[in-house]
Each structure stands twice: as structure tokens, then as C-alpha cells.
């Protein structure tokens, strides 16, 4: 299924709010937990208690420091999982058809029983969203929790990705970008949702909301309206107090 669908009925994806992500890694671990137990092979760990532990994760939280022209440096926590690109290069390079983009909802998936573990799709992904599981020998990636979002064994309200459900800060949002009125479309419009590496031409579905301007509280001087002294001395202050109390 290496060809990409011309269009998809829905365009499901995530909005990730860089203004509120506190970098807690909750999404990382709930993703690991859900996907270890569910879709396909478990996400394995090598040398789990050893000197060089390493494992498969479908979602990882980076952090970056940004130094503005003036003012203090900022730190931004940056979760990253598959962006379910419209022009997914990871799909078209796949020699076996294991990688595909679903025509119903645009979710990019790996059919693990077809995957030969050649790694090429991971090479093609600019975002590092695919990891070859060392135990199973197949490519793993974010499934957008395809086994949750339609799952009739889950209560309706739980039919959302594990990472979205768990995010304590509410920095992750899930929905259909084909619906201009969906929560994700609105958020992305209002807050300037952006693409990562647009120059790669992948047309990512997931959008990132940029952090709001920081350290914008204007520094003010002695006679700021809210701090105009009522009196300079304790005595003067108590005089003011007397007068003010009269009025209360």
C-alpha cells in the first residue's frame, strides 16, 4: 500500500501546545504503556536494567532553549510523535507495502506482518517518528491510537489517544482537521498552528501551537499608576489610612 491516497475522508491528528507543555513525559509513558499492551508487537526494551538501557518509544519529549534578541533565554518542552503527514515520504519508500496511510482518516500505520524491518521508512521520516523495534524486528510508530479512537470496548469519552487522555497540562488535542469547526482546526487557526520542517514537503497533519510571547510584563518606573505612593513616610501613610477608612 505504498501509494498515498489522493485524499482522506477525515484528517485525524494532534495539536500540541508548546505554550503549556511542561515537559512531564506523561504522554511518553502512557503511550509506551498502551502500545506495549496493544497494537502489534510490544514496545521492547533492551538492557532494561543494565548499563546501556534503550527501548522503543513512539513519542518522545525534547527540550530546546531559545535565546531571544533581548531578554532571558527560554526553555521549551517539545513532544514529538508521528505527524501523520499528508505527503508521507515514509509510506512511499516502503518496499513491502507495510507502511500505509489510511484513506478513511489519514492515519499512517505499519502493517507489522508485512514489514521486513528494512528501516527505510525511518530514514525517510524527517521527524524521527519511527523506531525499529529491536526485539520484534519491525517498524513501530505512533498509530494515533487507532485501536482506541474507534474502540467500542471503551467508553465513548475514552476514544481518544492515550497521550491526549493523560496529558495533565492539556497540551495535547486530538481531532479532525478536515472539519474546519473541530476543536483542533479552531485552535490551530486561532493560535497560529505551525508545521515542523515545512521545507521537507511532508505536509504534516499534526500542528504545533507556538509559545506565547514571554517576559512581556513591561518594566515600569516609580510612578506607575498602580504604585503611586499615597505617602512616603509611615506617618503620612497612617494619615492616609485614617482618611481612607472614613470613606469605607
Amino acid at each position: 500500500m505504498t501509494s498515498l491516497p489522493n485524499s482522506t475522508q477525515k484528517k485525524l491528528g494532534l495539536v500540541i501546545d508548546l505554550d503549556t507543555c511542561v515537559g512531564c513525559h506523561a504522554c511518553v509513558i502512557s503511550c509506551k504503556g498502551w502500545n506495549t499492551e496493544n497494537y502489534g508487537a510490544p514496545l521492547s526494551d533492551q538492557d532494561a536494567y543494565g548499563s546501556d538501557p534503550s527501548g522503543t518509544f513512539l513519542n518522545r519529549v525534547h527540550s530546546f532553549e531559545v535565546q531571544p534578541q533581548t531578554g532571558a533565554a527560554q526553555l521549551i518542552h517539545f513532544p514529538k510523535s508521528c505527524l501523520h503527514c499528508d505527503d508521507a515520504p515514509c509510506v512511499t519508500v516502503c518496499p513491502t507495502g507495510a507502511s500505509y496511510k489510511r484513506s478513511e482518516d489519514g492515519i499512517v500505520l505499519v502493517n507489522e506482518s508485512d514489514c521486513i524491518g528494512c528501516g527505510l521508512c525511518a530514514w525517510a521520516c524527517p521527524y524521527g517518528a519511527r523506531e525499529l523495534d529491536q526485539a520484534a524486528g519491525v517498524m513501530k510508530k505512533c498509530t494515533l491510537c487507532v485501536d482506541r479512537i474507534y474502540n467500542e470496548n471503551l467508553p465513548e469519552e475514552d476514544r481518544e489517544p492515550a497521550c491526549v487522555r493523560t496529558c495533565p497540562a492539556g497540551a495535547r488535542h486530538f481531532g479532525d482537521f478536515n472539519d474546519p469547526n473541530s476543536h483542533v482546526s479552531t485552535l490551530s487557526r486561532d493560535r497560529g498552528g505551525m508545521d515542523l520542517m515545512p521545507e521537507q514537503g511532508t505536509a504534516p497533519v499534526n500542528k504545533y501551537l507556538p509559545p506565547r510571547p514571554k517576559d512581556a510584563l513591561p518594566e515600569i518606573d516609580v510612578l506607575a499608576p498602580f504604585l503611586t505612593p499615597v505617602a512616603e513616610t509611615p506617618k503620612g501613610f497612617l494619615g492616609w489610612l485614617d482618611k481612607t477608612l472614613e470613606k469605607l
Binding site: H62, S63, E65, V66, Q67, L75
Partner: peptide, 8 residues
Amino acid sequence: IGQVRAFE
């Protein structure tokens, strides 16, 4: 925003 550097 400014100059970006990878942190942790």
C-alpha cells in the same frame, strides 16, 4: 523567537 539550541 530567537536562537534555538537543543537542551536536554
